[in-house]
Design a protein around this nucleic acid. Structure first.
Length: 352
DNA sequence: AACCAAGTCAACCGCTTACTA
DNA sequence: TTAGTAAGCGGTTGACTTGGT
């Protein structure tokens, strides 16, 4: 496939558009429509490349563009859709009338991403961040707190939690580095849980004996006992509500966060997305998203402001052009099966 | 008032897919 | 089937703005 020639040639103008150029473009499109973008600049009397004209029109001059601050509702919608679609800005934009993909992308990068990070959540997976470096600001804040309010109960408790977090993080690191961790579903036929490397073979540790691990650690972590784990269905195929795993022998399906699992054979997934249960899972006490607890997400029944999600495809995106640079959030959510369960809130509380 | 750092956002770049001859 | 072109997309850049010192 050849690349379209770039506009550097012929000394075409680049950079910010003037009002005169805008007017020329608007006038031309009003009269003739855009037709071929490549041919448009000459016909419209613009010293720009067609691509530049198209961008200017679609991102700025189009009459149906809504400008100005994003409303709270729009913000919620973006968060909601991003948790499902990842960085599919154009797909997200189709559900926010008047907003362009570029605008949404900018808004995400400058506002929403930071917001999630500040709340301690990974903006790509929309899940609590479990890496030590992500927790570092909290630990530092804790240290400062202790300096100013030494030995307060709350501060002491936080300190203990921070120390435990560091320990757990170290454990996780050991497992991952030993196994070249790959989130194949753990086998449930016995208490021996096997972990696989990228070739779907056992990693260096071979079969990791979860039972032994639990026994060894249950003294310091009360929730780490098998009956607890079983009752919480962590290792059951049923009711994996906190982080649902899509079991599929061909390994092409992905784990989708927030209990979201769409029927891949169904083109219209709007019902799945709009009506899916995104709320905090009280039964298992396992929040799977920052949005669950904080009501940032619109409730499934109040999402009437969402346009139908009829064009969204959550198929295997391996061949998608957008996959060349960064994974979308849903993809990344699939990359950590049990460690994330392991670090669920009840675990963290008990282990501290 | 001047400087600097951080934030914002329009525009560009480079890639991909779709379409067509 | 192949190659060229058009258009769409997401990431990145850089000019501009804002706020702090």
């Amino acid at each position: 496939m050849g690349r379209s020639p770039c506009c550097d040639e012929n000394g075409l103008k680049k950079g910010p558009w003037t009002t005169e150029e805008d007017q020329l473009l608007v006038d031309y499109i009003d009269k003739h429509g855009h037709g071929s973008w490549r041919a448009l600049p000459k016909l419209a009397g613009l010293n720009r490349c067609g691509k530049s004209c198209r961008l200017r029109w679609t991102n700025y001059l189009r009459p149906d563009i809504k400008r100005g601050k994003f409303s709270e509702e729009e913000e919620n919608t973006i968060l909601h859709l991003h948790s499902i679609l990842g960085n599919k800005w154009s797909a997200i934009a189709t559900h926010l009338s008047g907003r362009t993909d570029n605008e949404i992308k900018n808004f995400w990068n400058t506002h929403l991403k930071k917001k999630l990070i500040q709340m301690g959540y990974d903006p790509m997976t929309h899940r609590p961040r479990t890496d030590l470096f992500a927790s570092l600001p909290n630990i530092i804040a804790l240290a400062n707190l202790l300096q100013h309010h030494p030995l307060e109960d709350h501060a002491v408790r936080l300190q203990v939690e921070a120390a435990q977090l560091a320990k757990i993080q170290y454990l996780q690191f050991l497992f991952q580095s030993s196994n070249n961790y790959n989130p194949m579903p753990p086998t449930t036929s016995s208490n021996t849980t096997q972990y696989y490397n990228n070739n779907n073979t056992l990693g260096d540790l071979g079969a990791f004996n979860f039972t032994d691990f639990v026994k060894e650690n249950s003294a310091s972590a009360p929730s780490l006992n098998l009956s607890n784990l079983e009752s919480q269905s962590l290792f059951s195929n049923e009711n994996n509500s906190g982080s649902q795993l899509l079991h599929n022998p061909d390994h092409n399906t992905q784990q989708v966060p927030f209990n979201f699992q769409t029927n891949l054979n169904n083109n219209d997934i709007s019902d799945d997305i709009n009506c899916h249960k995104f709320n905090f899972d009280h039964e298992n006490n396992s929040p799977s998203s920052p949005l669950n607890n904080t009501n940032i997400l619109p409730s499934p029944h109040s999402s009437s402001h969402l346009l139908p999600l009829t064009e969204i495809s959550i198929s295997n995106n391996q061949g998608d052009s957008s996959s060349n640079s960064t994974n979308n959030g849903a993809d990344q959510g699939a990359s950590s099966y049990w460690p994330e369960l392991f670090f669920e809130e009840h675990f963290m509380h008990d282990i501290s």
